[in-house]
Each structure stands twice: as C-alpha cells, then as structure tokens.
Design a protein around this nucleic acid. Structure first.
Length: 424
DNA sequence: ATACATACC
DNA sequence: CACTGGTATGTAT
C-alpha cells in the first residue's frame, strides 16, 4: 500500500485548488518509492502505526465505568476553561503570501506568470501560484517538482532580501501594535483591540487598512485572520489566501460554529503524526475532538490533553505572553548543519565537523553568547538520524573547544556511523 | 542529562 | 542523479 507520507504534498493548500491530487500523489510516490529516503520514512511510519495500535489497545481496555468517571472530570475541566474564555482581545495574524517567491517576483516581474520555485533540485522552500497549479509546493524536493512541472524555474534564495522586506512589513505592524510578535520573517501576531478602540474602527477595517499599507510599503500582498485568540487568528489568515482575510466574531457561538467542522490539522501544533493519531480514533475535526473529549483525556498526557481541549472549544492563546519591560527574545540553541554527498571518509567528516564548530563559535561570539552543551547530529546515507550530546565543564564560545567536544562524540560513534550525508 | 520525535516556516 | 536548515519543545529514559 502507498504509505501515508507520500500524501504529504497533496494536502489542500492555498493555490492548489483544482490540482489533480491523485496524479500528484502518483508522481511523488513513483519518484520516491525506490529511494533510501522512502525506506526510512516507511520505517518511521510503521513506528507511528505501532504507537497508534498500542493506544488503540489501551483505549479498548478502558471500562465504560472508568470512561464515565473521566467524562465527569473532563466536563469539569472544560467548564473551567470555558469560564476563563476571554473574548475581549482582538488578534490579527498577518501572513505574507508566498513570501520568498513574491520577493523575487518583485524584482523580476516576468517570474510572476511562469511556474517558479525558490530552491533547487534538492529542496524548494516556496513556489509561486503559477507553480502551485501543478501541485508544486513548499518542502517538496525540486526533482519531484520538476517532474510535476518540467518548465519549473528555480531561483536561489536570498535571505538578505527577505529580511529587508520583512523589516518593511514590521514597520507597518508596529503602528497597529507596538508589541507585535513576529513568528518568522513572513508572519506576525498583533493584538489590535486598543487600536480599534482608539480609532473607532472595526477589526475587519483595521485588517483591511493594515493589508493595504503593507501592500503600499512593500508591493507585496499578505493575508490576515482576525479572531479572539492567536490560534484562531492563524487559522483565519490561511482561509482566504492570497490577498484575503477572514474574521471570526468574538462570540462563543461564532467560535463554536467555525470549530465544529474545522479539521484538527488546520490548528498550529497539530502536525501529521497527531492528526493521524486522532484520525485513528475517529477524530478529524475540532467538533470530533470535543465530542470525544473523555477519550482524549484518557489517552493523552496532561500537557497534550490540555492543548487538545483548548483546541476543541477555541480557548487558549488569548493573553499576550507576559514579558517584563525590556524583555528581549532569548535564544535557547544555535546550530549549523549541512547536507553533502554521502561519505564515510573519517578525515573528511572530521574536517566538516571542525568547520561547523567554527561557524557555531562565530555565531555565539556575534551574539555574545556562551554554550555549555555541544550536540553532534549525524544523518546516515540511509537518512537515519542520530544525535550525541555532551556537557562542557564551563560555558564557552571557543571554536577549538566546541570542535574538540564534537569530535570526541564523533569518534565515540566510529564503529556505527558508516557513510553520512549530513553533519550538524 | 541525554536521545529522539514532532512541529513550524 | 537529486528529499533542506534552524529553532523550539514534548516524551521517554
């Protein structure tokens, strides 16, 4: 049978309406099926299936009486969450439309109407809408994209450019919410209730104005979602892409109406694995999640069931993260990794490790940081990943110290690593 | 503290 | 021919 991961590139995505999903699925499968990558993905897939099977056994062993007890407790939890529901905040999630691709089009307008992707034969990061019509999309290997669309043009990424345009968008965001939260180069969360009140504008009008201003300042389009929580705002920004917006009215009923049929996979934080796990229990939508809340609590950890119950009723992510004055984002890790033609040459691999250590050390120095832990990441030629970590006696940003630590980890693996395709 | 998996863009 | 790179976080041990 076709492994489910080969469906990864056929999910509905903005600009992919009308794509022959079966054809795309077949091409992706045919291009991959004999690869080492496919074999490893299939093995991981099997591990997920095994985990799901174990969960199903556990679910089957739950006595109806136990489930009834859980149900009462869950309803109590849901009631408490419900009591904490806050509909007074107005969150906007702004998401630039195919950002990287659009930036290149800005400087080379002729690329607008030819299928184009940022990246290369190995991997593409974004595709323009002309390419999406062929089923080409983010995170698809370029050689598969090229099979789907032989006339596809590749453009090299240019992060300096993206950062420039991102800073222009942020100038705009700042006007609407000085404390806006930039998730990445191409998106941000803004809380605009104060702005709306101050200007006597509706959230929908503010979102329109913001998008117009972004377009004027950058010549790029974006989409926006407006909702009482960040989580829901993000769902909405995706709903009318490109160059569109969607508003959820800040009422319990409006939220419930949207959630009742919303696929759980649309929620940020629900990825492929959680989606499939839930699907195994007949849970496809947030409505299903609410209906099966007792089962969810019985099967998932406290952290996950808290998250999932919040998802089910649309509560969570309404408060601005508490940040003391002068707060600046603190990175928790800094890394460099590189893929290369697979090799088992220990000297060549050691040289790569030393070079990566140099880069990491330079990064630490640039940001005035020290590290106490060093992690070596190895991906074998067959795509199996292994990580080895060590703690240093004291914090450092010295390239030699980091390199030595990584090389010790590497030598400790000597008998097992064989041929590698990536080091980090 | 360590290893690995998952998720996001 | 060819399946990324960077960061955060959850889970298990």
């Amino acid at each position: 049978p076709t492994s489910a991961f080969t469906n990864a590139f056929t999910n509905a995505k903005a600009g992919m309406e009308g794509v022959d999903r079966e054809m795309v699925k077949r091409v992706v499968h045919d291009m991959s099926v004999n690869s080492a990558h496919f074999a490893t993905e299939s093995r991981k897939e099997a591990a997920v299936e095994a985990k799901i099977l174990a969960m199903k056994k556990r679910a089957a062993s739950i006595r109806p009486s136990a489930l009834a007890t859980i149900k009462a407790a869950v309803d109590d939890r849901v009631a408490r969450m419900e009591a904490s529901r806050d509909l007074t905040k107005t969150w906007v999630h702004v998401d630039m439309d195919s950002f990287f691709a659009s930036v290149h089009i800005l400087e080379r307008p002729e690329l607008r109407d030819v299928p184009m992707a940022v990246g290369g034969m190995s991997m593409i990061s974004t595709a323009n809408y002309a390419a999406r019509k062929f089923g080409v999309r983010s995170a698809m290997p370029g050689f598969i994209a090229k099979k789907l669309c032989p006339q596809l043009v590749f453009v090299d990424s240019d992060f300096a450019k993206y950062k420039h345009y991102a800073s222009l968008t942020r100038e705009v965001f700042k006007e609407y919410d000085p404390q806006f939260d930039a998730g990445s180069l191409d998106e941000a969360y803004l809380e605009i209730s104060a702005y709306c009140a101050g200007k006597s504008m509706t959230p929908a009008d503010v979102a329109e104005a913001l998008r117009r201003e972004v377009r004027e300042k950058t010549k790029l389009t974006c989409s926006a979602g407006v909702a009482p929580t960040r989580r829901l705002a993000k769902v909405c920004s995706d709903a009318n892409k490109p160059d569109g917006q969607m508003v959820i009215e800040p009422t319990r009923d409006a939220v419930a109406a949207l959630l009742s049929s919303l696929p759980v996979r649309k929620i940020g934080g629900v990825g492929k694995v959680l989606d499939r796990t839930l699907a195994a229990f007949g849970i496809a939508t947030c409505g299903d999640l609410l209906r099966e809340r007792a089962l969810v609590v019985a099967l998932f950890s406290e952290v996950q069931s808290d998250f999932l119950l919040g998802v089910a009723i649309g509560v969570g992510g309404e408060a601005r993260p508490a940040r003391p004055p002068g707060w600046a984002p603190q990175r928790k890790s800094l890394s460099q990794e590189r893929t290369f033609a697979p090799t088992a040459d220990a000297r060549a691999l050691a040289a790569k490790i030393a070079a990566l250590a140099e880069e990491v050390a330079a990064g630490l120095a640039r940001e005035n940081l020290l590290t106490r832990t060093v992690t070596l990441k190895m991906k074998r030629a067959d795509f199996e990943v292994a990580q080895r970590q060590t703690s240093l006696p004291r914090p450092t940003n010295d390239a030699q110290t980091i390199s030595d630590a990584a090389l010790r980890l590497f030598r400790g693996e000597k008998n097992t690593h064989g041929s590698l395709r990536l080091l980090g």
